[in-house]
Amino acid sequence: MPDKKKTPENSTENKKIAELAPNKEDSNGQYLNTNTGVKINDDHNSLKAGDRGPTLMEDFIFREKMTHFDHERIPERVVHARGSAAHGVFKVYESMEKYTKAGFLTDTSRETPVFVRFSTVAGSRGSTDLARDVRGFAVNSIQRRVFSTL
């Protein structure tokens, strides 16, 4: 597959991608920490009263790891729970100023970053993609929902 990232006209960078960058974390070459920044010496064993003893409540490292894990799910969407999405851009062919003052439909030089999510409606988050169902086709521009069609 040709590497599209290398040609400027096919750049996959956009303002939204840049805006997300400060939140991105990369563990490469880093120490394992607790959420308070303490370096972890043993990520494989809980703290016990003896190597065949019961686990101790004071094991804040275990409790933090397990509590975060226990709480990592959020309720799924009631409809459209199953979906897949991608980043991209939208560019208008010709200015539509005669009909609208919306910037992304009038400025032919503007590339509007978008995030598009396709989905089924009825199935739960882990359900099959090929259910006989209506499909969602939802488009988000930066900060603003532009349109959504079924």
Binding site: N41, D42, H44, N45, S46, L47, K48, A49, G50, D51, R52, G53, P54, L56
Partner: peptide, 13 residues
Amino acid sequence: KIDARKIRERSRS
């Protein structure tokens, strides 16, 4: 009965 050190370890057993 427990008579042990406070330890983060896996028993060899």
